[in-house]
Design a protein around this nucleic acid. Structure first.
Ligand SMILES: [Mn+2]
Ligand SMILES: [Mn+2]
Ligand SMILES: [Zn+2]
Ligand SMILES: [Zn+2]
Lengths: 142, 142
DNA sequence: AAATAGAACGAAAATGATTATCACTACCTA
DNA sequence: TAGGTAGTGATAATCATTTTCGTTCTATTT
């Protein structure tokens, strides 16, 4: 059992879910495509190449579950579908610059925003658990 | 012709669109509900009280048009529908804290983020035209 | 190893917000 | 007044996502 697989099994066990070949495969695909921001449909198409019997509903269900377990992050680039990427295991968030011309996605990390977030929490007596930060515009090629 | 209506007419004229009773009414509803973040359906229900003949498609079309003309801002609070609010005429953006328990939405302005954005633009040679910034968590009551 | 209970799955139908279509109306201009 | 066109309302279409339901797999107990 591979390293990634064992880690997945641990998380699933802890939360009373079972390790299945479909879940394992979907995780591998996500890992193999680090840096991409794939939609469920795109993941489905890749997964099908290795397991032609898999169902689209299972892909959706698995991504939903992975989201709840903190394994993946769900993204919304306003292109009419949800996108997914592996959550990084260290707690170094990153966010996205999205080119509205060519669709390129650039990642940046958000150390600087930490302070801003803390200030907001105090000011509004609000406990931030998550944030979504996106900048839209034109990349260097466009 | 009211003040708001005249202003709307000016914008529409400039862009070769016509002032219609439906467009006027939808703008009024948005203005009457400043601070809310209404969905198309919610706007439709309010609008219907004053013009029972209006169609839902017209509400969608008008909101789309208003978005293009910079009259409204389109928001996505990840609750499965687009939401709308009037763009402020001064150029003071604001963003949102969204309570994942009770749904409360708190607004904050983003002076501090200006600098951050400028840094990003330089660092990645990227021209930012728009940004979406949301914090999710628990409000003071939850 | 067989039996069993419950979790997970695949196919297909359902959902629901949004968009497209199309016939009709309102408005403008000649 | 007639003709051209933008805008509208009803309705159908779209399409990502969710739900349903009968079947299959997994883990556990005999
Ligand atoms: Mn990313
Ligand atoms: Mn707001
Ligand atoms: Zn680009
Ligand atoms: Zn709350």
């Amino acid at each position: 059992m591979g390293n990634k697989t064992q880690e997945l099994k641990n998380i699933l066990d802890t939360n009373n879910y079972k390790l299945t070949s479909q879940r394992d495969l979907i995780l591998q695909i996500l890992a193999d495509n680090e840096g991409e921001h794939l939609s469920a449909e795109e993941i489905y198409n890749i997964v099908k190449q290795r397991d032609s019997g898999i169902g689209l509903a299972t892909v959706y269900r698995t991504l939903e579950l992975f989201g709840e377990l903190g394994i993946v992050q769900q993204l919304n680039f306003d292109d009419n579908c949800r996108r997914y990427e592996l959550e990084e295991n260290n707690n170094e968030h990153h966010h996205h610059l999205i080119c509205i011309d060519c669709g390129a996605v650039i990642e940046f990390n958000d150390q600087i925003l930490e302070e801003f977030e803390t200030d907001l929490e105090k000011k509004y007596d609000f406990l931030v658990t998550e944030h979504s930060i996106k900048f839209y515009g034109y990349c260097e090629n466009c």
